[in-house]
C-alpha cells in the first residue's frame, strides 16, 4: 500500500467501476429520469454499506477472516431498531432514539468483533469455524431482539422511530462516512497502529518477533472495524430500509463483504464499490422493470453482482495490485513444531 502505487490502484479499479456504472446508468438514461434524485435516493444505502464494508476491510487487514459479518450485521439492524423503539416509548424524540440505536448497534458490533478477534488470535482456532458460529449466533439473536420491539412499535408506538431524511442529515452523514474513510486510510498507511495492523495481517509470526502484540493489534482493528460494521447495520435500519421484520439485514453483510473484497479492502476504493452497489440495491426494482425482469430476479441481482464482483476482482490484475493480506484466515500459533 505504498503511496506511489495509489494512482495505479485507481487505474486498476477503473474497469470494475465502469462495468457497474454502465449497469446503473443505462436504464436511468433510457428512462430520462431525474438523475439527481435517483442519486440522492441511494445515499442512505451508500452510507450503510460503505461503513460496513470499510469496517470489514480494516478488520480483515489485520489477518482475521471475517465470516461473522452477516450475522453481526443482522443483529445490529435488530439492535438499532429495538433500541430506537424502546427509547421512543420512553419518551425520547424519534431522531435521537434512532441515533442512539445506531450507536448501540455499533457497540454490540464492536463487542462481538473483539470477541472474534481475541479467540481466533489467542487460541489456535479455525477463523472460518469461529466466524460461522458467530454468524449463526447473530442470526439467532436478531429475531429475539427485534420481534418484541416490532410488536411494541406496531401496537403501542404505532410508528418506527427513524433518522431524519432531510438533505442536511443525509449529506451530513455521508460526509462523516467519507471523512471516516479518509481518516482510516491515513491511519492504516501512516501511523504505527496502521503498520501494526498490516503487519499482523501479512505475517503475524514476524510481527510478533518484531515485538508487537498481535492480539492487541487485532483487537484494536476489531474495535475499529466492527464498530463500523455495527453502525452500518444501524444506519441500514434507521436511514435506508426504514423498517424491520424477522430476517431484515440477512444477506446484506455478505454484500458488504463483496463490496470490500472487490475494492481490495482499500478504504478509498471501497467508496466507489459501495456507491455502485448502493445504486443497484436502491434501484434494483427499477432496473429490473427496465430490463423486463421479475421482482425475484431484482432481489437476486445484488447477490449476483456481488459474486461477479468477487470473481472480477480475483480473476483480473486487480488481485495482484490489491493483494489480500498474506496471513488472512491462517491460524496464528507460535508454538508449531518445526522439525
Amino acid at each position: 500500500m505504498a503511496g506511489k502505487s495509489v494512482k495505479g490502484l485507481f487505474l486498476g479499479a477503473l474497469p470494475l467501476a465502469a462495468v457497474f456504472a454502465a449497469l446503473t446508468a443505462i436504464p436511468v438514461a433510457a428512462q430520462g429520469a431525474d438523475v439527481g434524485s435517483l442519486i440522492y435516493a441511494m445515499i442512505p444505502a451508500f452510507i450503510a454499506y460503505y461503513l460496513a464494508a470499510l469496517g470489514h476491510g480494516v478488520f480483515e487487514t489485520s489477518g482475521v477472516l471475517n465470516l461473522a459479518i452477516d450475522g453481526v450485521f443482522t443483529l445490529s439492524v435488530a439492535a438499532a431498531f429495538s433500541t430506537a423503539v424502546h427509547l421512543a416509548i420512553a419518551g425520547y424524540e424519534d431522531t435521537l432514539a434512532a441515533g442512539i440505536g445506531v450507536l448501540v448497534a455499533g457497540i454490540i458490533g464492536a463487542f462481538l468483533g473483539v470477541f472474534l478477534a481475541f479467540i481466533t488470535t489467542k487460541l489456535p482456532i479455525s477463523h472460518g469455524a469461529a466466524g460461522l458460529s458467530l454468524m449463526f449466533v447473530g442470526y439467532g439473536l436478531a429475531p429475539w431482539v427485534g420481534l418484541p420491539a416490532a410488536y411494541m412499535s406496531q401496537n403501542i408506538l404505532r410508528r418506527k422511530p427513524l433518522l431524519n431524511t432531510d438533505p442536511v442529515t443525509v449529506y451530513g452523514l455521508m460526509g462523516v462516512a467519507i471523512l471516516l474513510g479518509i481518516l482510516l486510510y491515513f491511519v492504516i498507511t501512516n501511523t504505527k497502529i496502521g503498520v501494526a495492523i498490516r503487519a499482523a495481517g501479512e505475517n503475524p509470526h514476524a510481527a510478533s518477533a518484531l515485538g508487537i502484540s498481535v492480539v492487541k493489534t487485532r483487537v484494536i482493528a476489531a474495535l475499529l472495524g466492527y464498530t463500523l460494521i455495527g453502525i452500518g447495520g444501524g444506519i441500514y435500519y434507521a436511514l435506508y430500509a426504514q423498517t424491520w421484520q424477522e430476517g431484515s439485514g440477512m444477506g446484506s453483510g455478505w454484500i458488504a463483504f463483496a463490496i470490500s473484497l472487490s475494492a481490495g479492502r482499500h478504504p478509498i476504493l471501497t467508496m466507489i464499490s459501495a456507491a455502485v452497489f448502493a445504486g443497484i440495491l436502491k434501484h434494483k426494482y427499477f432496473l429490473a422493470s427496465e430490463l423486463n425482469l421479475s421482482r425475484d430476479v431484482a432481489n437476486m441481482l445484488p447477490f449476483l453482482v456481488a459474486l461477479i464482483a468477487m470473481v472480477i476482482f480475483m480473476a483480473t490484475p486487480l488481485k495482484r495490485r490489491l493483494a489480500p493480506p498474506s496471513a488472512l484466515g491462517k491460524i496464528f500459533f507460535r508454538e508449531e513444531r518445526t522439525v
Binding site: 458460529s133 449466533v137 439467532g140 439473536l141 429475531p143 431482539v145 420481534l147 418484541p148 410488536y151 424477522e246
Partner: peptide
C-alpha cells in the same frame, strides 16, 4: 417476540 428459527440458529451457533 418468540422466533422458532431464532431458537434453531442460536442452538447451531
Amino acid at each position: 417476540g418468540f422466533s422458532g428459527p431464532g431458537v434453531m440458529m442460536l442452538l447451531i451457533g
